[in-house]
């Protein structure tokens, strides 16, 4: 009896600490995100003077108006959209195509191919040798480099392979092959339809990767017309070039600085909207992906 009282008392203290710590973590993560949202629709002077804490002050859509007028942002948006869609399609196709043979127990090249893939996880040529290859292939400063580099990730191949191993019974192919079904037909007619869940996971993994891609564009793209959103974002958020240099419609430096501050918040929101819209889906499938990956890394 005594021990159970002692236990419940200790547990109560634990619970109080536990909930406090988690609430604190919740607040620390959520507040900056929330602040960006309210600051994006507040009067920039109020934000700069520290008047915006919990609710937006002097609500204005000026920032968003400016953003939508900025041709660079639209172009970046369009480019990123294309890179994401085409790139992800290539990713999924190649990943599933190699994951299927690797998932088959009777495939003779399985062991060799796995080693072939694993080596690239730990050893790579590095920045310049890769750059030279891209240059030799004339992919430098072209649209292609954004969709082809990173076309297959070994980690994702392993996730897909594990999924196929667990979800496509070996006998299914044996049965189909008796009816004269080839691996190609089996792959397209049986494997892909049965892999919707893993394709969703891969789409999101790869898709987010493309949407957030920055380094590849920094290294390989020179032509401004090809710039993805993240490069535009950098010039606005990090390099403080909020105004399109071509557009000299803002009268003075003070006003320009004010607008600069204002659009920063809005730009973060605008750039994150597609991800935010997908977030409920993302969370479910990404978590699934981590689980599959952790079962057999």
């Amino acid at each position: 009896m005594k021990t159970s009282i002692k236990r419940s008392k200790e547990d109560l203290i634990f619970d109080i600490i536990n909930y406090t710590v988690l609430t604190l973590a919740l607040f620390v993560v959520a507040y900056p995100l929330y602040f960006i949202v309210i600051a994006s629709i507040s009067d920039p002077d109020a934000v700069n003077n520290g008047l915006v804490w919990l609710l937006p002050v002097g609500i204005t859509g000026e920032g968003y108006e400016r953003i939508f007028q900025d041709s660079r942002i639209w172009l970046g948006y369009k480019n990123t959209f294309i890179y994401t869609i085409v790139g992800t399609l290539i990713n999924i196709t190649l990943t599933m195509m190699i994951a299927y043979p690797l998932s088959r127990k009777d495939f003779s090249g399985k062991k060799f191919l796995m080693i072939f893939l694993m080596i690239t996880m730990y050893f790579n040529g590095g920045l310049i040798p890769t750059y030279l290859v891209v240059k030799d292939l004339h992919l430098n400063n072209s649209w292609w480099v954004m969709v082809i580099l990173g076309a297959v990730s070994v980690y994702n191949v392993i996730i897909a392979r594990t999924f196929l191993q667990n979800n496509i019974p070996e006998e299914l192919y044996e049965a189909a092959s008796i009816d004269g079904c080839s691996h190609f037909v089996f792959f397209i007619k049986m494997v892909l339809p049965l892999s919707k869940a893993i394709i969703a996971v891969l789409t999101l993994y790869y898709g987010i990767g493309h949407w957030n891609e920055f380094m590849r564009a920094l290294i390989y793209l020179r032509d401004e017309k090809l710039y993805p959103l993240q490069i535009i974002l950098r010039s606005i958020l990090v390099q403080n070039m909020s105004q399109d240099p071509m557009m000299g419609d803002v009268e003075n430096a003070v006003e320009m600085a004010r607008i600069g501050e204002l659009i920063k918040y809005g730009v973060i929101i605008v750039a994150s909207v597609p991800v935010l819209l997908l977030y409920p889906l993302l969370q479910k499938y990404f978590v699934q992906g981590v689980m599959i990956g952790s079962v057999k890394g």
């Binding site: 196709t93 190649l94 990943t95 299927y100 043979p101 090249g109 191919l113 040798p129 890769t130 190609f184």
Partner: peptide
């Protein structure tokens, strides 16, 4: 057929991972 399915990815790794290793 299985080798053919794996081929595009193999080509990708040779081009963008193994060729740079040579470099």
């Amino acid at each position: 057929q299985l080798y053919l399915l794996a081929l595009p990815a193999i080509v990708y790794f040779i081009l963008f991972h193994y060729w740079p290793m040579y470099g």
